[in-house]
């Protein structure tokens, strides 16, 4: 079973990752992912980036920020921006109550909270089970995807959250050289 996925994967994507993975087949690399739901799709992100999960609480709005940046809140002394991925990717229903989930991510030195519909599980994924992402069909640009995997016949989209958070698309960081271009 595993052998077949391994041979399939490189064919489908030609991804180097899978190639190298074949070489080190002996000790399979496993990663843990936190799965969450956005709209009707199941996503997962690297659990090592998750700082904590908490309920939504009132934020302080930021002037002239895009709608999906809800504002900032005080996370034990850190002023942390909250991004509603539901608004950003136009999926699900953007309602806010104490059951609304915020995942606090630690990306590099930065803390960012993302609002999602629900968090479900922590899964272990073998590198070899990761298939290359499709070019379309998900809310995320495939540039921010790590790949696809399936658990119990359910497709889970693995998100490269570091890349997404630091992307110009979310506009969470400045000091980027192309920042000014983006604004124009």
């Amino acid at each position: 079973m595993q052998a077949s996925t391994q041979t399939n994967a490189p064919k489908q994507a030609g991804a180097n990752r899978s190639d190298s993975q074949v070489a080190v087949n002996a000790n399979e690399v496993q990663h843990e992912f936190l799965t969450f739901v956005l709209g009707s799709e199941n996503y997962a992100l690297d659990i090592m980036t998750v700082k904590e999960i908490r309920g939504y609480e009132d934020v302080t709005k930021i002037a002239n920020a895009p709608a999906y940046i809800k504002g900032v809140l005080n996370l034990r002394g850190d002023i942390v921006p909250i991004v509603d991925l539901r608004l950003k990717f136009d999926v699900g229903e953007a309602t806010y109550d104490e059951f609304t989930i915020v995942i606090m991510l630690m990306v590099g030195e930065r803390i960012v909270g993302i609002v999602v519909d629900e968090v479900s599980d922590v899964i272990k994924v073998n590198e070899s089970d990761v298939k290359a992402p499709p070019e379309f069909g998900v809310a995320f640009d495939s540039a921010y995807l790590h790949g696809l995997t399936s658990i119990n016949d359910q497709m889970i989209i693995l998100v490269n959250i570091q890349k997404l958070i630091s992307s110009d698309e979310l506009g969470l960081l400045d000091a980027n050289a192309n920042k000014s271009l983006e604004q124009e």
């Binding site: 302080t60 930021i62 002037a63 900032v72 005080n74 850190d78």
Partner: peptide, 25 residues
């Protein structure tokens, strides 16, 4: 508190602070 630490510079705003009730101003 710096907004830039986790976010970015906001025009017209020098920074943020945490009020007595824990909210950000």
């Amino acid at each position: 508190k710096s907004l830039e630490q986790h976010y970015k510079r906001v025009p017209g705003v020098a920074g943020a602070t945490i009020m007595g009730d824990g909210s950000v101003a």
